[in-house]
Amino acid sequence: MELIERYLEAVKFWLPRRQKDDIIAELSGDIYAQIEDREASLNRKLTEAEVEELLKQRGNPLLVANRFQPQNQLIGPELFPVYRFVLKIFAFGYLMPYVLVWIGMMLFSPAFRIEQAHASGLGAIGSLISYLWIATCLVGCPVTAAFAILERMQERMHLFDCWSPRKLAHVRDLNHIPRTNSAFELGFGLIFIVWWIIYLHSPVVWIGPLAQITLSPQWPWLFWGYLLVALVNLTLAANKLMHPQWSEEKAVMRLFSDLAGSLLLCWLMKADLMAGFAAANTTPEQSLALTEAFNHWMRTIFPVAVALTLVVFATNVYRIVRLHRSQKRDSL
């Protein structure tokens, strides 16, 4: 029967090379035995449609052949969670921040936009995708190869036998705030506030006896804004020192103070902070050039401040969501 021969040939193609003939002989015997059995019970020859149905019941030739293959896995179930974890670190620790910074630069830096895409949006997305693809290949391929080698060696190396309950990591309470951190925040905050008030209360800042910087007219707003944020942070640090557990109230307060600090930073970058510079042995032209260079540099790194704001916002929101979930779990 031609259909049977075609089926067997299709199965044979995918079989392990050394066993091809042997397996096909056995499968062929089984198919013909089944047909003979059916014909004997029906007392007639099977039609081609019935043979076709019988072969269909046996399954796709590729799947049938696959069952005879040895179980080959590039990375087995024992190592796979570690492999996935490493790839996740790469994805969330490198690719995602890269994309966020890229989006920030594209939105707020015209120079970067032109450099990336020659003013074409599609070209910019294409260059981003090609960079991500290359980075993924450069990291993903060696990582996969390393895990595939480990997979082959793990039985000989007894990778999973070398462990002890004493060597396992201590349980981390994510809601606990180490008192040393709070004490450091408190001390640093106090020093910062004193320094801020003494040296930056006026828009004219002296650098040594011979040089002075005149700050932008917007400086009083920035001065009081940062002072307010620093005072809120100081209060929060004192509270954390006394009650070293995160609560939703503390987390929300931290979100607002961090967000205010980050937004002030963004404003600072765009505010043409240096209004003038004067120093001994410096000509007015040199002072002007220095002032413009400084302000240009601040504007250039503005997208970094935006990306930082996004990261700060995401971290704080994550903390609030985590606290909310853990409180919900505890109340159950």
Binding site: E26, D30, R58, G59, L63, R67, F68
Partner: peptide, 8 residues
Amino acid sequence: IDEGTLYP
């Protein structure tokens, strides 16, 4: 038991 399971 189907043949795809039995023979392997």
